[in-house]
């Protein structure tokens, strides 16, 4: 995708669906051009993510799927060579990756850690465009969105800033690490890193008190849950078998004999 494109793309909308919500509402587009251009904007309306993609994730045994160049669907960014984060700095990104590993309890070398960290970078980099589109909704579309998804979900799309939450959260981690151990978070050993995470996790004793650190933890955990449990590794772990069903209803077989 061309990053200079100002129009919100289909992929960006799909990305914003992580929380189960997406809005769109602009007009004046050429439908024909839209169907031909892979990065074209969607027509005005409201879109909801289908859960059918989970079946595809499960079927995908070969890592990232390769999509044809002219595909309308932009799920995976084709790339070659070393991953270059779009939002996080070269110093920040390894910390994000480390946090994903710690939250999952996976060694850093695990492929799933890379996949989720890259996805977090992608969604964070696109978040400003998603927020701008939410603000640009016409009054009619805004009303409709509130009725569809609830006022709270719409407000979150308008207000939540993952870039600010991450930037401030990463800085908070380093401040804490300096105070406790006179080092950056990245330079700490695993037990020390986990101790800091414990203090901001949703398992902490003073769970009602929020600060920059707890908000960042909440954001990262939400991202990791969505990333992991919609991946092949996560779905396998859940025992998800795709869209299967019982041949006969367990416990009620006598009714169908």
């Amino acid at each position: 995708m061309n990053r200079e494109e100002s129009a919100l793309t289909r992929r960006q909308w799909l990305l914003s669906l992580g929380g189960g919500v997406a809005l769109a509402g602009w007009s004046g587009m050429d439908l024909e051009a839209a169907s031909q251009a892979s990065s074209a904007a969607l027509p005005p309306g409201i879109y909801e993510a289908s859960r059918e993609h989970l079946g595809h994730a499960l079927a995908d045994r070969g890592g990232f799927a390769r999509l044809p160049a002219d595909s309308e669907i932009e799920i995976v960014r084709p790339r070659s060579g070393r991953f270059q984060p779009a939002f996080f700095t070269q110093t920040q990104y390894p910390v994000i990756r480390r946090l994903v590993g710690l939250l999952l309890g996976e060694p850093e070398a695990a492929v799933i850690v890379d996949e989720i960290a890259e996805w977090i970078d992608l969604t964070a980099s696109d978040s400003a465009a998603v927020r701008a589109a939410a603000h640009a909704l016409s009054p009619a579309h805004h009303t409709l969105a509130v009725h569809y998804y609830g006022a709270q979900a719409v407000r979150r799309l308008e207000e939540f800033d993952p870039q600010k939450t991450s930037r401030e959260g990463l800085a908070w981690l380093d401040t804490q690490s300096q105070e406790r151990h006179s080092r950056t978070f990245a330079a700490l050993d695993e037990p020390a890193q986990i101790a800091i995470l414990d203090s901001i996790s949703d398992n902490r004793p003073d769970v009602k008190t929020e600060n920059t650190g707890t908000r960042f933890f909440h954001y990262m955990k939400e991202r990791v849950i969505h990333g992991f449990y919609t991946s092949r590794a996560g779905l396998d772990e859940l025992g998800y078998r795709g869209n299967a069903f019982y041949a006969s209803p367990p416990g009620c077989e006598h009714l169908y004999a």
Binding site: L102, L104, G105, S201, I225
Partner: peptide
Amino acid sequence: ELYGQAFSTPGFGRDFRRKVR
């Protein structure tokens, strides 16, 4: 639930994943 329970399961790491599963 497929994984909805994960959001309300406290903690993180391997132990968290075991509880979700």
